[in-house]
């Protein structure tokens, strides 16, 4: 059935490699049980996460490695992203007030905002002397069963 699986990709921390990340993620979500619109969103969330690492952990001009590992089963889709850049905890960035953002012409923080909106779990860890690790999880929504479309329970 191909309901479980996973793979890894390692890239150099350059924005030109984001297309490779999206291509890799597209093939992974396509093999999973995530639904169509959720697939696109998960690809976007990972693209945003990696773009943030390039910008903040590697400060754009430092070249390092970023690894993206995917593991999925029928219930969940998990992505682990690791880098050896400087400590960067996306959870330290506050949520965005988009109206205020537009008023001020600010563009920062949007990627993390999207990542949080899309994924069910966003967990960051940093080990001194080791690396940043970001774990993103999306749960596969159960498909409605035939005859239970009304969603009435306990009748």
């Amino acid at each position: 059935m191909g309901d479980s699986g996973g793979a890894s990709l390692e890239i150099e921390s350059k924005t030109e490699n984001l297309a490779k990340v999206r291509e890799f993620m597209s093939s992974q979500v396509s093999a999973s049980r995530l639904e169509g619109t959720e697939r696109n969103k998960v690809v976007l969330a990972v693209d945003e996460a990696v773009a943030n690492i390039i910008k903040h952990a590697y400060e754009e001009n430092l070249v390092g490695r970023i690894s993206v590992s995917v593991l999925f089963d029928p219930d969940r889709f998990e992505v682990q992203i690791q880098d050896s850049g400087k400590k960067f905890d996306p959870n330290s960035i506050n949520d965005v007030d988009i109206i205020q953002h537009v008023k001020e012409g600010r563009k920062t923080g949007l990627g993390i905002f999207l990542m949080r909106q899309i994924m069910d779990e966003v967990e960051y860890s940093f080990r001194e002397g080791h690396r940043n690790q970001l774990r993103l999880v999306k749960y596969v929504k159960p498909k409605p069963k035939a005859g239970s479309a009304s969603g009435v329970k306990g009748a």
């Binding site: 984001l18 999206r22 976007l44 693209d47 945003e48 773009a51 953002h101 537009v102 008023k103 001020e104 012409g105 600010r106 563009k107 949007l110 990627g111 905002f113 999207l114």
Partner: peptide, 17 residues
Amino acid sequence: DYISSAGAGVFIGAIGT
């Protein structure tokens, strides 16, 4: 084919002006 927050951010930064 694809837009991320960086792309959308261009328009956020410009619409006010």
